[in-house]
Amino acid sequence: MSSTTTEPMSPREPAPSNSSMSSRSGTQHLPGPTFLRVLNSEVIKFRSLLSTLILLASTAVVMVGFGALSAWGTGQFADAATRDPQAAARMAAQGGDLAVSVPTSGIAFAQLILGSLGVLLMSSEFTTGMARSTFAAVPRRLPAFAAKLVVVMVTSFVVTAVSTWVAGLVAVPILDNYGLQLDPGSSQSVKLLLVNSVYVAAVAAIGMALGTLIRNSAGGIMSLVGIFFVAPIAFQLIPGDFFKEARKYLPGNTVDPLTATEHVPDTLEAWEAALVLGAWVVVPLLLAAVLLKRRDV
């Protein structure tokens, strides 16, 4: 067994631990996959993929970039309004404080990127075959699913919140140039930051559910785009009251009611919007969890 050619690779097992070798319940006392260990494993998996880190960085860049761009545009708009009564009227129609929503103006792109990340983290398990390793290590499957969900949602929330905050800090001096005030610490600013960050985390969770259900990266991302970008436009174009009403229940239309200072006609009440968004997260996730448990890997 130890000829010279095979010697460097010959099996070098550690000294067998006295108890684990032949007793039937030998491994019962050894550490197994508890939730915290599986969470740790999912964190290692998350941070060891370059593509994931690139998507997170892109989100930050897009959020801060759009915040700056939007600050400049809003300033130009306000500037025009001081000279043009028509523009002033339009600005008044928009509901007064434009500056406060500047830091979250890139949110549509953040939700697309982080929603896609949610899809990819799950679909790539199946497309690469990694799922076999994952679910061999955690054969009950749902702890691994829950751990990945925690990683995806927490990361999405934190990245969105931090980049919104930074976008605010960048926007303040730009708006200041045009005589507009933005206080990133005001209650409305904080509310916008928190609601939007929770919303993006919810989109990432929906993405993960889609990735689990469809098991295919392109299909999952297309479904996500369908729900968040195509459906709102399509529902607006299709005539009839049904689609006009249904449009309010799309997940993308729950953010405005949640952040509005007062109720806007033809939108959901804040509590309704919270329930609708919650249902959009919980129902696909439950479906995904049930199917993940039952289907072959």
């Binding site: 494993s41 999912e42 290692i44 998996k45 398990e125 690469t128 061999a136 955690v138």
Partner: peptide, 27 residues
Amino acid sequence: ALLDAKAVHTSRSAYNHLLAMAATHSI
């Protein structure tokens, strides 16, 4: 078990793959 030589995420290093697997059992 070795069920499939490709039961690995293609973009992850071998070391990180094993590290993530090990983490589930505190190996």
